[in-house]
Design a protein around this nucleic acid. Sequence first.
DNA 1: CTGAAAGCGCTAACAC
DNA 2: GTGTTAGCGCTTTCAG
Lengths: 382, 382
Amino acid sequence: MPGEIMGRHDFHAAHACSPGSDYMIDRDPSTADERSERVRTLEHKGTPASIRTLTIRDVARLAGVSPITVSRVINHPELVMERTRDAVRLVIDQTGYVPNMLAGALSSARSRLVAAIVPSVTNLIFLETVQALTDRLRGAGYQTFFGFSGYPGTREDELILAALSRRPDGIFLTGVRHARKTRERLLAARVPIVETWDLTKAPLDMLVGFSHERVGAVVATRLLQLGYKRFYVVTADDERALRRRRAFESTLRRHGITDVQAVEVPAPSTFALGREAMAHLLSTGFHSGVIFCSSDTLAHGVLTEAQSRRLAVPGRVSIVGFGDLEYAAHTAPALSTVRIDRVGIGVRAADALLASMSGEPARDKVIDLGFEFVERGTTCQQ
Amino acid sequence: MPGEIMGRHDFHAAHACSPGSDYMIDRDPSTADERSERVRTLEHKGTPASIRTLTIRDVARLAGVSPITVSRVINHPELVMERTRDAVRLVIDQTGYVPNMLAGALSSARSRLVAAIVPSVTNLIFLETVQALTDRLRGAGYQTFFGFSGYPGTREDELILAALSRRPDGIFLTGVRHARKTRERLLAARVPIVETWDLTKAPLDMLVGFSHERVGAVVATRLLQLGYKRFYVVTADDERALRRRRAFESTLRRHGITDVQAVEVPAPSTFALGREAMAHLLSTGFHSGVIFCSSDTLAHGVLTEAQSRRLAVPGRVSIVGFGDLEYAAHTAPALSTVRIDRVGIGVRAADALLASMSGEPARDKVIDLGFEFVERGTTCQQ
DNA sequence: CTGAAAGCGCTAACAC
DNA sequence: GTGTTAGCGCTTTCAG
């Protein structure tokens, strides 16, 4: 009785299909008795097949082929005759067999996994990059898994170790500053790496980013050009933000402006911190000027506080953010900002990794995507 | 010469430490010659150790113990004598050995991986849940990896298959509606599962959510109570959103209100779609009333459009969103919304999974976290 | 085009 | 407390 022979309900309790036809694979010339025997062999170390996860051998037996053929049907179907392929696929469908990629990866030394280290999911600025990256990689058959480095007490080295222990085929990093030990580990792993969101002269491998120094300098230069006289900074206590600030200030200094008041707030930036920072500026003598903020979120808070104090924007206060977040543009049309190609970073990084993982000799090891100063309501009226 | 004996630079090119002392592990009573021999044994199938990733056996040899002892030092250090432990750890440190969890997982049938299927990273409403989930799981030694189901053309079944093929120890799902085949696969995997963000009478396993029907009903009831007479709906074309809408409308119907105009927009919700929806309402005769939107994002767009048309809020228009996004609260203080315990869902789901993965008999298979109608500027003045 | 043999790197189970 | 043996489930050779 075919149903019994195949132990259908043992393999996959919820599976239902009309009896008889399902397993009548024409490639399999064995008698019912032989197949019945095969099913008995599915018993394994005393564990009946019914409560064991199916393996490639189970599928192979049921399809009357060898395990390697099943493996080929899954990974290189073009190497297998159509007849055989269909037979195997039928069994896979009907048993609900799920390949074990842990075993596959171990055996082939290819995990089809890419590790992405990003500061946080909740920081909106990285969202589209993450999405673009995952999308693109998935299209090429890779899964992306994340490590979040932005929480206090999360050491990058630990994350990298955790990531490497899954033997990813590629690594995406946010930032270019890593502890020496981390760099060593990364290099020792001999895995394609793409650092992003910054530039450096000594990348670990590939690099897709933009210059934070140049951001600070460009914003300062442009604001001077627009005629602003009084400059302020509201910045999160974040490595890259501080480098933007430093470049901003030193550019101004080169133009004789040395009294740039700065408010530093703890990372991560929030709307509330922006409000507080503005309140602080006002309480310490702010009268008018342009405020360079380290993120749109902070800028949004600054703007809101300014408006709630009835300061004319941009008459009295002009505000520059960073990141060009969608929501900020909708919310605060009077906010200037620095636009980063967030999607581009994800796409380029994915492409770089994919090329490298497939053994291509990388053409551009370093891609500078630049940025754009988006002026909204920063005509100087002061 | 010790440096040569240990082939330091072969193991870990960037590693630098004073020669001699490093590998002088007192547990290892072998002579220099013997160790030199061991290093030669690291050559493996013609591949010199120097360009091979270190394995547990390499560490074992260098520490003068057996592989299983190294394994224990890593996974169950309490089972190993302190002396031995230190010796092994020293070698691990100095060689930069990174355990291969692929192999470990295969062997122990525990991947220490949790798969999370969420609609998207870019949908702000899931962010905190995702963060809370990952945080909590990481604290317990689990890594979380994501599948994003929200993109058009992404079939949940494929994601589940991809996830299961990594043999996760637990699964986090967003939503309770799954294709029959998906349910079967999930059940067949015999893995702890927690469905979230909804309720159902037939959960696959564990469940942490709230009732979308009740959301619609509660909002409708409360708005009636406040005295509103004219009701509108702006909703994304999303399964759960549509169920909230249906409940909203049928509650109103029970109170004799049958003319609820609805604007349906394609998912995912955006600010721009909200504006368009409001424009559409206005062009089709909207005069005044309360608008129930399927998300804060949409509501924000609706609000902005209304304000740009100089409609008094809440005098002429009152708007109810969904989700209680931070940014919306800051941006649109006149927006009522439905607050979901987004962090709570992540935390409870993580706890449920952790309990189940550690073999505890779950106490609460189903947790209804409820929700809260947050009224901001919905005093009826119409 | 298909198969047999031999591991991938680790750990469970059982000795000692 | 530590070691030995025997796989986990798959894929890479290399035969045929």
